[in-house]
Structures are given as C-alpha cells and as structure tokens.
Design a protein around this nucleic acid. Structure first.
Lengths: 200, 200
DNA sequence: TACATTTGCTAACAGTGTTAACTTAGGTAG
DNA sequence: CTACCTAAGTTAACACTGTTAGCAAATGTA
C-alpha cells in the first residue's frame, strides 16, 4: 500500500511546482517581482500551502541561490578539467565564470545580492563618470611613468576597479571572521600584483 | 518682501528633512526597510508631501547614491594628491576606496545594488564552499607549478575571485555599449596580469 | 473683501508577506 | 460500516508597502 509514498510524491510535486512557477517568474519578470500570491495563483493552490513547503519567501530564493552555486561549481570544474596546466586552468575557469554569470544572470544576481537599482538607474548617475575619470587618469599616468603607453588604459582601468569592487563586495557579503589587517593584506597583495602588470 | 524666499526656504527645509529622516532610517535599519510612511511620520507631514519633493521612493535612494559617488570621488582625489608617484597613487587610492566602502557601507551597498540576501543568508550556503574549494585548489597548483609556494594561496585566491566578481558585477550594472569581444578582452587582460603575479 | 493658488490632508487603491482559525477530505480503528 | 482523528487546504484577516485622486484650508494677490 504505497499510500504514504503517493502522498510523498504528491507533496514533492507541489514543491517542484512552487519552484517551477517561481523560477518562471524570476526569469520573465526578475526576481524582485516574485510574489507568494502569484506563485499560489500559478500552481492553483491557496497561499498557505506554500508555507508548508518553505519557511518564507527568502527560503525559496535561497534554494535558487544554492542551485546557482552548484551550477557554477560544475561549470568551473568542467573548465578546469579541459586543460592541464594550472595557469591555463585559471584562464579557462575565468571564462567559464564569466559565461556562467552572463548566461545565468538571474542566478548570479541572486547569488551575490546584485541588482536592486535596476541597472537603468545607474546609467543616469553622472557622478559615476566623475569618479571613474579619477581612476582612469591615474592609470594613464602610471602607464606613462612605466613607459608602457601601448597598454590599453581602459583595459587596465577596468581591471583595477574590478579588483577593488570585487574584494569589497565579496568581503561584505562574506563577513567572515577575518581581521581588518588581514583583509587589507589581501587588498595590498592584489593591488601590487596589478601594478606589476602595468610594467612592460 | 522675501515671501517667495521664505517659501523656498521652507520647501528646502522639508526636502532636507525628508533626506535626513530617510538617511537616519537607512543607517539604523538598513535601506531595505526604508518606507515612505515612516519618513512621513518622522518629518510629521502627511505622505503625499514627500511626493511633492521626490517622484518616488527610488528617487530618494538615487539621491543618496549620487552623494555616495561624490564622496567616493573626493576620497580618491584626496588620496591621489597625498603622493606623487602614479604607482603609489594607485595603492593609496585602493586603500581609500576600501576605507570608503567599509566606512560608509550604506552608501556603498546603495551605489552597487548590493546586499539583499542579508549577509547572514550567504553564510548558510554550504554550496559556496564547494565552489571556492575548486578555485583554491587550482591556485595552489599554479603556485606549485611556479615554484612559488611561499606565496599565500589564500591571498591569491581572493584576488582571483575578486577580479572575476568585480568585472562581472560592474559590467552587469553598467550595461554599456561594449561588445562581448571587448568585454572578454578586459577579462583576459586582467587574468593574465593576475597569473603573472603568481610567478616569483 | 473676493478670488486664485499653492499646500497639505484624508482616504482610498492595489499590492506585499505572513498566520490564525476553520473546513473538509483521507485513512484508520472499532 | 460507522466513528474518529489527523493532515491538507481553505478563507479571511493582520500589518505592512508604494502611490494617487480628491478635497479642505491656508496663504498671497487683485
């Protein structure tokens, strides 16, 4: 008598139904417009049913976030396996990382808590340009100083900013037990490595 | 008859009152819990008054975002002025950038749309560790290959990940007119620069 | 004093997440 | 076969959210 089995199966069906409906909404309208009510509507069950499967809305998003990290790990592993030299591996992994992020924007944004101000907003902030111009000019000066004017300053500027922003935002969402001093060591090491890349 | 002046002044007072109350709420409870109603309550005016000064809630946040970019630009400029060599400038600017981000978390999170999943959430995702372990192992292998085992692999791993995440997230919120090919050039340049830093 | 304009308010609309309390259907035991 | 009990699913509400239409009152002008 597979009664409990059937019940389990049914419960699982609802669960996957919730996740399926939720994912569909995330992909079409962005995850900021995900709503419990709309999910309930899509799966043709009442609202509290969803709370039998997930503690709250965040738990649903957390589920996707986990999925995302798994997919990313898989992509990185595959990339790594495709070549043998570690230096080459780092390069193909970088590309795999990039491709994952832009091939799965919804996942990536969820995983790193990115994307509230809806992108369009950011482009309207002229203040950003004022700030980046300071970065750009310094990069150019550094390249001139190094007699390395062939190097594309725009490339380098993006590299510089990325290291900074990447370090900051990862530390911010990680908030691990590292000391401030150690965090700054990471920063200095990354920047000194970058500065070396400015020389010929 | 400074009647219009007085009115202007009064209007300006309300505006700064709105921003002041809003900022206070952002700092104390995080900007996700900012609400028009609570602002109205704080400034002791009714809700629609706020809509006379700002088109919507996002406009208020945009205001802070702009402020943030201005403050960051100022901090970078000051750091730059403190030393003369471009290479040194890049280092002090990096530290200034870092200090700004962590000294003004609210600004930074707003500026880069960071921080929905409330940080605590991210720490509960064990899947992250599975992913990062792949990165770490490859970094270690690369260091061994380069006979540079003294280098701290943890430092390098953070640098590597930061470049990746930084590039991705900045490109994502910028969504400028760059071609995919050019974007990948930025990526490859940054990574090849990083790989050089792994050598002795 | 009469009019016009700005200023601000009340109250509502249309949403959101979440939960208490109830009904009903399903399986179990006498 | 009936009585019971548990679990599934429902309705309806609470307490919020952003936003706006329509109205009242205060203010300055003619």
């Amino acid at each position: 008598m597979g009664i409990v089995e059937r019940k389990m199966r049914h419960k699982e069906e609802i669960r996957t139904g919730i996740l399926g409906a939720a994912w569909h909404m995330v992909v079409t309208d962005g995850w900021q417009s995900l709503s419990i009510r709309k999910i309930a509507d899509a799966i043709e069950y009442s609202i509290p049913v969803i709370y039998n499967h997930f503690e709250n809305k965040e738990a649903i998003l957390l589920e996707f976030s986990k999925e995302g990290y798994q997919k990313l790990a898989l992509a990185l592993q595959e990339a790594k396996n495709s070549v043998v030299l570690p230096a080459d591996q780092l390069e193909v992994m970088a590309i795999a990382y990039w491709d994952f992020a832009f091939g799965n924007k919804e996942y990536y944004q969820l995983m790193f808590g990115l994307g509230i101000p809806a992108c369009e907003m950011v482009n309207q902030i002229t203040e950003i340009k004022e700030m980046t111009s300071i970065l750009v000019s310094t990069i150019r000066e550094a390249l001139i100083q190094n007699k390395n004017e062939e190097a594309d300053y725009f490339l380098k500027y993006h590299g510089y900013w990325s290291i900074l922003h990447g370090l900051v935002s990862i530390q911010m969402i990680e908030n691990s037990g590292k000391t401030d001093a150690f965090k700054k060591m990471i920063l200095k090491d990354a920047i000194s490595g970058f500065c070396k890349s400015l020389a010929l």
